[in-house]
């Protein structure tokens, strides 16, 4: 079952600027869904629409099987969120900040200390949130999102402003929350490496359109399918003809012939045939097939 389901969601800020174009996505319950895309792809707009911060123009948003708009308050009580820059009252301490939200959520006051300890801010005492580093503010924002024990967390670039140690801590914390408390997490990022280490499911968005959605394994499978060998030759077209006669899947990319094969004997055989046909072979190399390349190919 999906805890968040979006169908055909489109949005524009002005008539000329269509930010989202019929975006559909499904976040499976219990998953960590990495919402990936370069800056300006439409990630934040999508998340703000899910949370009702922007007025929905078209499409459908369902959370826990219910349409968002008519059940807004009931659904928001089950969601914790952290959108863009952390929201903290600068003149209040970490504890006072959480007290503000505790009053609204009406959760036990003991939760305040629990979540502060969970995000590593239990020691901040009387220090005002305005004096916190960006990383500490981000963690305080996460503490606020966790205060009412939500079943869904929606986080927009939560590792922004964190140092490498902080990024690892945040990642581990999110994995623990997902694994031990069963919280479904929708987390946006523009860093593939980050999503790769954290997510179980991935959605890739670019220029307001979804380009891929599936499990991380499916993305990796696509990576394997696109892997192979590239022949850099003196005559790409002629080389393609020779190679395609034996491997129909071969194709010409940027003057080089790509073939989805891994067998070393076959590679040697193809090389021999090319040389015999008088085509100079300058280089034989494994095609770049990491997730970064797949991502770049998807958003090209």
């Amino acid at each position: 079952m999906s805890c968040i389901e979006i169908n055909q969601l489109s949005h524009h800020y002005s008539r000329a600027e269509q930010v989202l174009k019929e975006v559909s996505l499904k976040v499976p319950e219990g998953s960590i869904y990495g919402f990936l895309g370069p800056n300006g792809a439409g990630k934040t707009t999508t998340l703000r629409l899910i949370l009702g911060l922007l007025r929905q123009q078209s499409g459908e948003i369902k959370i826990l099987g219910k349409p968002f708009a008519p059940h807004r308050e009931a659904l928001l009580s089950k969601i914790g969120s952290l959108i863009e820059n952390p929201s903290v009252y600068a003149q209040l301490t970490a504890m006072e900040n959480l007290k503000v939200w505790q009053k609204v959520y009406q959760c036990p006051s003991t939760r305040i200390e629990e979540v502060l300890d969970l995000v590593g801010l239990g020691h901040t005492g009387k220090k005002k949130a305005g004096q916190f580093s960006l990383g500490m503010k981000q963690r305080l924002g996460l503490a606020a999102a966790l205060l009412h024990q939500p079943s869904i967390l929606i986080l927009d670039e939560p590792t922004n402003g964190l140092d490498p140690g902080g990024i690892v801590e945040m990642r581990e914390l999110l994995k623990t929350l997902n694994r031990e408390l069963g919280i479904s997490i929708l987390v946006s990022s523009h860093l593939l490496s980050e999503v790769e280490k954290l997510a179980t499911h991935v959605g890739i968005i670019h220029l307001g359109q979804m380009l891929f959605e599936g499990t991380l394994d499916e993305l990796k499978k696509r990576q394997q399918q696109s892997s192979g060998i590239q022949f850099d030759t003196g005559d790409g077209a002629k080389a393609l003809q020779i190679i395609q006669s034996q491997h129909a899947a071969a194709k010409l990319e940027n003057g080089q012939v790509s073939v989805p094969i891994h067998d070393r004997a076959l590679i040697a055989e193809l090389n021999r045939q090319l040389v015999q046909a008088g085509i100079p072979v300058y280089q034989i190399q494994a095609a770049q097939n990491d997730l970064e390349t797949i991502f770049m190919n998807l958003i090209k």
Binding site: L51, I83, P86, S87, A90, V104, A144
Partner: peptide
Amino acid sequence: QLEYRNNTWKQVHTTPQA
């Protein structure tokens, strides 16, 4: 202005309040 300056409107509007 407290909400604008502290970037907290979005947090206020995602709490379960009408």
